[in-house]
Computed example of a mutant assay.
Amino acid sequence: MYSAYPQEHARPPARPRRRWARRLLAVAVVLLLILAIMLVAADRVAVAYAERAVADQIDQQIAAQQIEASTAEVSIGGFPFLTQVAAGRYRSVSIVLRDVSAAVDGNSVRLPVLDVDARDVRAPLDVLRTGQGEVTAASVAGTATVAYDTVVQLIGQPGLQLSEQDGRLGVTAPVEILGQRITLTGTAELETADGEVLLRFDDLDAEELPGNEAARAFVNAYAQQISIAVPLPTLPFDLDLQEVRAEPAGLVISATARDVPLNTLG
């Protein structure tokens, strides 16, 4: 019995070693967190730099086309960003142009907003740094809004108003028929062709419309008069007009393109 005690007291204590191991683990975790924060911060700084570089090139091309617009808003998606920089390829680039205005056939056409979503963008680091070379996208989808006041100005009929009604383009127009002042209402069919938006009003009516052929003939003639083709400015990024729909803010057009340069607007 007596000989066992010295052997027990000879065992090395385990607690100090465990405490030291826990301290090392805690220090390692803190260092990893600091490193992760630094990498994220560097990633975000690089994103901001690239977004400014792309926006500057787009602004220069917009000005060269004599198109007025606010400063381009560019947002580059995907994380981590630095790996995309190294590869020179970016998953997505979002571009917003506001208050776009250009002269078309002597008329000023205003687009309050032009949203562009570019996918699979190729932008080598040297191009972003120097501004020399092309930034290209495999596919581009864009939407633009034509303000209703612009369309009303092109139609040129006093008192006429346009608005969205249950997803369709609605019209309200005060007219005088056979000495009687009435208000015509109706909707339009919308189509796209050759870079223009076609408005066709063929369903105008009024509760107080006189029930005779002369009154109906006047309404039909007026409907043809306000049915026009709305010219659009040449859209940047080689966007090809696809469809149009009526929304509360105006006529919203959709356009697409493939394999286009983002910093050479054509």
Rank of each mutant, 00 (worst) to 15 (best):
T145Y: 04
D126Q: 13
L128M: 10
V113Y: 08
D99W: 09
V116P: 04
Q161N: 14
A118Y: 05
I95S: 05
L114A: 07
Q165V: 11
V152A: 13
R110T: 02
A147D: 15
R98W: 02
R129W: 09
A102R: 13
D120Y: 06
V146F: 06
A103E: 15
N107W: 06
R98T: 12
G133A: 13
A141M: 02
A147L: 12
R119H: 14
D166A: 15
V109T: 00
P158Y: 10
Q165T: 10
Q165I: 02
Q132A: 15
R122P: 05
E164R: 08
A137F: 09
G159Q: 14
V127H: 07
G131I: 06
Q165P: 00
G131M: 09
V113W: 02
R110P: 06
Q153W: 03
A144Q: 01
T130C: 14
V140G: 00
A137K: 01
D120G: 07
A103R: 11
T143E: 10
P124I: 01
G159I: 11
A144F: 03
L128K: 03
L114C: 04
S163F: 10
D149C: 06
Q161A: 15
T150H: 02
L114K: 00
D105L: 07
Q132H: 13
A118F: 07
V151H: 00
R91A: 13
V93H: 07
S108E: 09
L111P: 01
T143S: 15
S92Q: 14
V121M: 05
L125R: 12
T136I: 04
S94V: 03
D126F: 10
V152H: 00
E134H: 09
P158I: 12
V100A: 06
G133C: 13
R122Y: 01
V104G: 13
G156P: 01
E134G: 02
N107C: 00
A138W: 04
G106Y: 04
A103H: 11
S163N: 12
V151G: 03
P124A: 09
S163K: 13
G131V: 09
L154Y: 04
P158N: 11
D105H: 07
V100L: 07
A144C: 08
A103D: 14
V146H: 02
A123E: 10
G142V: 02
V96Q: 06
T145G: 02
